[in-house]
Design a protein around this nucleic acid. Structure first.
Lengths: 231, 231
DNA sequence: CGTGTATTTGAACACGTTCAATGGAGGTGG
DNA sequence: CCACCTCCATTGAACGTGTTCAAATACACG
């Protein structure tokens, strides 16, 4: 897939980057490369240095921190068009690892080229928005992890992700392609996969929502939202 | 206390702001005011709009999100010189509430004046550093809340705060002025004050550290660090 | 001295974990 | 084509960490 046909071209980080480069689109293209990766492949490693700024073009990925030997905390899920952690625009080291959840395509921009453009208005606001969003979601997740029960944590995550999906695509009848496995949900909200399974069963039995075969079906949107919202 | 004698003048956000204003220090002073508040006073309210950017000059404060009716998640503790959430440099609404932990003094800068300076080099890197730090600490806290036991959560918080205190002041013999009450620790690491009390007793009995009367005494620094570090 | 707030301790409880076993879907090689 | 393997979802039972409720102590302040 090339940028010319990219559905994310019109908004977000890439959009600002390319639109600002109308003067000289080739200079940007020279400092840009694609990368393809399979589901489960590691895309970035915490503390590792890189001269590139990464954007997810296609597929799903997630950012995480490894803790201890067998555990990890998922910090955020990345959807097409999403910038990998915004701090990497001016920091060489990754603050978190990243892994492909499905097969993915990534855009890698030279950081120097990005920074050169970063004085332009459109890119500046794109960066600001990325920070705002990142800060907002990690604050919310902190509140959820620190103060909420398993049910509410999981409901929050589902609600949060479907909200983001709805903003991108037109969704019909509350069914979403949803590649998270139960262990990913568990790693994101600080529970075990076993308990996530039980809560999902509960949700299914209550007619709230059901997750199977990579598809999330929301049966009772208003109730899920009530359960998953912070206040 | 005036900025001229401020010990934080030389580093951090205020430092960059004032040093960049050598050309015209008065223009900045005109868009700046002090605010004094007592312990327990609310300094900012989530979702509320403000035209000011806040910096803590003196005392301790914390940022938090109210959840439900009686609970709150503390997102971060603020020490003298700290910028209140960095996103407020370009966002009018507060993403989190803030409260004074001790009596405090705050500097309030007009956002427009800050943004006008934000193209200067020193301020830009100061803002970048604020974001880097904020992102780093909230990622770490997420991992701690999601993956660690009560003991490790509390050890992490103590370790994290003493590290920051050490960076600011010269500390003798591992004793720190430490105004957090047990409920603040509880609200920060997602436990109840009752359980925080038990864990602190355990730490005391083990000769790890002891917290009493607003003073934290670290008895076994290396063991506390081992327990409180992520990997 | 009385009131209010923070700390401390105990006992019962509950939510979520751990361990273990089963079943199903997809992939591979004989 | 079937046997075998692996990975994931599912379920049960026992366990444990942290919560909840309640009461006692300590301390500051008017």
């Amino acid at each position: 897939m090339l940028c010319v046909t990219c559905p994310n071209r019109d908004f977000g980080f890439c959009g600002a980057l390319f639109n600002d480069s109308c003067e000289d689109p080739n200079s940007l293209r020279r400092s840009h490369r694609f990368r393809i990766a399979q589901a489960g492949e590691r895309l970035a490693r915490r503390r590792e240095a890189s001269e590139e700024v990464l954007v997810l073009c296609r597929g799903w990925a997630f950012q995480y921190i490894e803790v201890g030997d067998q555990r990890r905390q998922i910090l955020s899920f990345l959807l097409p068009g999403d910038l990998f952690s915004a701090v990497n625009i001016f920091e060489r080291q990754f603050q978190s690892s990243a892994m492909a959840l499905t097969d993915v395509q990534i855009s890698c921009f030279d950081r120097s080229a990005v920074r050169a453009k970063s004085s332009t208005n459109a890119l500046q606001t794109a960066v600001e928005n990325a920070f705002r969003q990142q800060s907002l979601t990690s604050n919310e997740l902190l509140a959820v992890l620190g103060q909420h029960s398993a049910e509410r944590r999981i409901a929050y995550l589902l609600q949060h992700l479907t909200d983001r999906l709805k903003a991108r695509n037109v969704i019909r009848e509350d069914r979403y392609a949803f590649p998270l496995q139960q262990r990913h949900i568990a790693d994101a909200v600080g529970l075990t996969n076993v308990h996530v399974n039980r809560v999902l069963r509960l949700f299914r039995n209550r007619g709230l929502c059901s997750l199977a075969d990579g598809v999330l079906t929301v049966l009772n949107p208003s109730e899920l939202e009530r359960l998953g919202s912070l206040n």
